[in-house]
């Protein structure tokens, strides 16, 4: 079941089309990666989901009904361009933002107490934001984003400004939220964290959705016809036996066990390839090569831009 469905969204600003017929479907309880180059239209889509702005065409469904004003209490948003009132005290500010998200004062106080203890920042309550470091302020920002326990969380570059230890803390927190059933839309340029966290992705480029799907499926689709073989034996034996059918793209003879990467014409040819090799060499391991999201991102975007005669900027 999808907690959020956006269908055929179009949004036009005075001189350009920010979103062109974009559709996404976010399954309940998943972490959904929203990827794309700068200026592709991700932030516009996120703002539409947050009702900061409205679509010109298309429809957004939230939890089965048309997105309504009250839904903001069930959505949490950590914008990329984020900040807090510099001169306001941490505690008062957190209380203010929590109440804006519909919590009562007492409930907000109770939950803030829990989070301040959990993050071990009780001593910050009476400090002003301007007295905190950027990372410390980010921590507060993250806390007030999730304080009202929304069903849908939208994180735009949540790890920026964090040191590795705090980034890990936030990552664990995100996984914990997922475990408790929260759906998360995750927008980032950090592809390794996409691989690590996301279940589904959508890649937006030039205002259009150019790639969508389950992340494993997407990765398989983009390269499962490449196989890596670790072997003992003579490389010439491989070359002479398979080169007529398959391309060898990577020949790594470093290390005790040499490896070779072979491109088959389809993912289903793994068995055939293996059969043709076994008589000539000893196969130590045989694996399909799954491309990284990083490679897929670059490949898909570049191919799309080339096909449509667009520049990559």
């Amino acid at each position: 079941m999808n907690i959020l469905t956006a269908s055929n969204i179009e949004k036009r600003y005075s001189n350009h089309l920010a979103l062109d017929d974009v559709s996404i479907a976010v399954p309940k309880g998943s972490i959904y990666g929203l990827l794309g180059p700068n200026g592709a239209g991700k932030t516009t889509l996120i703002r539409i989901i947050n009702q900061i702005t409205g679509p010109d065409k298309g429809e957004v469904l939230f939890d089965g009904h048309k997105l309504a004003e009250n839904d903001i209490y069930r959505i949490g948003y950590l914008p990329e361009e984020r900040g807090l009132y510099k001169k306001m005290k941490v505690g008062e500010q957190a209380l203010f933002l929590a109440q804006l998200k519909g919590l009562s004062r007492t409930e907000a106080l109770k939950r803030l107490k829990y989070w301040f203890e959990k993050f071990e920042i009780q001593g910050w309550w009476d400090k002003k934001i301007e007295e905190l470091s950027k990372g410390m302020a980010q921590k507060i920002q993250f806390m007030v984003t999730i304080i009202h326990e929304p069903q849908l969380l939208i994180f735009d570059e949540p790890f920026s400004g964090f040191d590795p230890i705090n980034a890990q803390l936030i990552k664990d927190e995100i996984l914990d939220l997922k475990k408790r059933g929260t759906t998360i839309i995750f927008s980032t340029h950090n592809m390794s964290s996409v691989e690590e966290l996301c279940d589904h992705i959508t890649l937006i480029n030039k205002s259009k959705n150019i790639l969508s799907g389950q992340i494993d499926q997407v990765r398989m689709n983009y390269g499962s016809n490449v196989f890596e073989i670790a072997y003992r034996g003579n490389i010439e034996a491989i070359k002479s036996n398979i080169s007529s059918h398959y391309d060898i793209i990577n020949n790594d003879t470093e290390g005790s066990i040499p490896k070779v990467q072979v491109v088959a014409s389809s993912p289903s040819e793994g068995n055939k390839l293996l059969q043709s090799l076994i008589p000539h060499i000893e196969v130590v391991s045989f694996n399909p090569v799954v491309p990284s999201m990083h490679d897929i991102f670059i490949k898909v975007v570049q191919e799309y831009n080339k096909a449509h005669g667009l520049s990559s900027n």
């Binding site: 950590l78 914008p79 984020r82 933002l97």
Partner: peptide, 8 residues
């Protein structure tokens, strides 16, 4: 940049 947090 607190404004986008608030208008959400």
């Amino acid at each position: 940049r607190v404004v986008e947090v608030i208008i959400s």
